[in-house]
Design a protein around this nucleic acid. Sequence first.
DNA 1: AGCACGCCGACT
DNA 2: GTCGGCGTGCTC
Length: 809
Amino acid sequence: MPPMISTDYIEVAVTLPVNQTFVYGIPDALRVDACPGMRVLVPLGRRRVTGYILAEKKESGPYKTKDVLDLLDDYPLFPESDIAFFKWVAGYYIYPIGDTIKAALPAGLDCMDVSCAFVTVKGAQALEAGGLPHEEAGVLGLAAAKAGISLKSLSRRDPAGAAILRRLEKKDLVRISAVLKKETAGIKTEKFISLPKKTPSRQIRMSVKRHKILSIVREAGEISLTSLKRHVPTAPNLIKPLAQAGWLNVVSRRVFRDPLGEPVTPNTPPELTDEQAVVVKEIQTRADVFSPCLLVGVTGSGKTEVYMRLVADAVEKGRGAIVLVPEIALISQTERRFRARFGDKIAVIHSMLSQGERLDQWRKISLGKVNIVIGARSAIFAPIRKIGIIIVDEEHDYSYKQESGLRHNARDLAVVRAKMHNCPVVLGSATPSVQSCRNVVSEKFFKLELTRRVNNQTLPEITLVDMKKYQGSWGTDSIITPELGRGIRSCLEKGNQALIFLNRRGFSTFPVCASCGKTLGCPHCDVTMTLHKGEDHYKCHLCGHTLTSDIRCPDCGTGKIRNLGFGTEKIESMLKTLFPDARVARMDQDSTAGKGSTLSILRQIRNRTVDIIVGTQMLAKGHDFPAITLVGVICADLSLSLPDFRASERTFQLLAQVAGRAGRGEEPGRVIMQTFNPDHFTIKAARNQDYLEFFNHETPFRKALMYPPFSRMIQLKISGKNADKTRDHARLAADRLEQLNTREPKAQILGPIEAAIRKISSRYRWQILIKCVSSVNISRMVSAMVRDPAIQKVKSVSVVIDVDPYSLL
DNA sequence: AGCACGCCGACT
DNA sequence: GTCGGCGTGCTC
Ligand SMILES: [Zn+2]
Ligand SMILES: [Zn+2]
């Protein structure tokens, strides 16, 4: 157990966007159980909020302190040693410390006061009598129906809601009071039943059911109520009188929810290849020092086995391990293999888990029951005490970057955390990021390689098809070229599966008015709508707004819409026409929206009940499809022309990844990539599956324009509902930055510019880009800028800081 | 963030 | 005259 608080005061970080911590007094009754890493309920202003104990304090400082109201944990959620890490993260990402900790912890652990309106007796009478103004009756009815309504949810419904409520309060029809909103994730307890040591003297009537229960309990020794219910469904009612008469002992105990089914028995590791053994050895010799390693291994070269050896080795030495994997729907192949190897010694943090299940995985770690964790980006915050190794699989993957809230990059944080724990960190990939390659060149990382595939599979053969040849062709040839068509046919004739990739969903992606020529745009966003035939409407992919499929042009009022442009849904229907005997399935965000649909599509692929599978990048990651021998890429350059310095890298990674889906089984694979730019270095490098070729071509561009990894970059995203106010605020922010840009080496401030997508969900968007070779200077000036009251006080415009942005769009 | 305070326009 | 709008500032 960690050291308890021994002082009269504690330092607390509250979950609010404030850049400071607060000092509270701690009553003796709470102090005996309190320690850093626990949550407390504290008064702040005139409400109660959740805070995290950071440290003990001998003095209150210059403030008049308030007392902690309650201790919300009986065991710390994170070790005291992690606080330094959280502070580092908060500083680096320029994000409030309390919010940083909240983002790091499992969700649903926040309690706070929420203002709620309750209908008074007078209000109920008034509602029944009628005669109230329409809107007042509406709000009152809502509050009555829900037995109290929070002010926040009301003003979300209707911006005028708060004003109406105040009127009602004045008339004494509602009462507004603070209600403590409890955490939504909790610890699960279960009842366990056993026989008492001595048979009770008190006799009760013994029915058949009661006898049965007693005999089951006698046999089991101790049994949970849940398993007892499986034998006797009415057990909960039956045990009560038995327990009261002393015939049974019933205790409530905390349990961990097990989301992954029955625990697996650990399997035995296979023999390592010579190459694998060398890599493992190299990293093991650096076991007790911070040593970042880039492990480049072609698909199928056995990286996962190397990871598992390193993790097992760290555990043997009494230390823990963190394994990061890309975020995908369902559990990935890598996660499954780790679980098979380490059984119940490993915690799994995955987006498919419920809040409570995630909390339990976290608690298992913080209680020291397990000291290995595998999971997507949030697992980098897992409360492992003495980390012996950190693994980042597919380190180039974009899902390591969180694109909302605390915009961290888990891959970068892995390196930081490894440094704090003096341990190796292994970044593995077949196609490493430009950033990591650069770190090898600059000798920040050392590089290890796995060049041979374990079972001697051959790498897929990749051919390019120039789509320019078929521009204006008849029928479907311009989209599914004859080369790709022939490829699919021969793949199907051999009884294999084909995967067709297009990173754009929907049926028609470019609806245009036949009479005035205007595109059909979203009324809330600055993008065109997409026709979804299955759902029979036009949909905006940014805000979700829909328009009926039979709509006339809203601009001229009469024109019919011509549905140009194509997405996965259209490719699916074209393939069904071209190959009427083939079974075609589609996997994208639309086809996997329903619960269980992802699983059912994956099962179809695995059981070979589909022949052609069309999909978006969802198909590119994490799942193994052994029967796929052909991968067709409809348009390799879709993401190439985006106005973003990482467009090439993203395209290269995506193409390399999809290509890797071909030939995972016995038969060699084939990849056909259709492109308008067959001579572009990105496409060529993807065809050659050569990350170094890509790196060598991309590096000069980045260097010339001072883009990462040759500089640090921070992007400010300024948005608001009012176009003029947003623009003015963006200009103000840029002015402040210019004023703060005094230290050498100076930063380069670009903008403000209007974002490429000028409006999303009725919010106008502006951007400022800051580049600087000095990490310290760029961080200092941006922190100072956001702390400026002139910037902070304007609440109708939001300023979001994206440190090391992945995409600038 | 949320909540109160305070200062100005358009209503009784 | 006040009711209620929002801009400003503070929370240990
Ligand atoms: Zn028109
Ligand atoms: Zn929209």
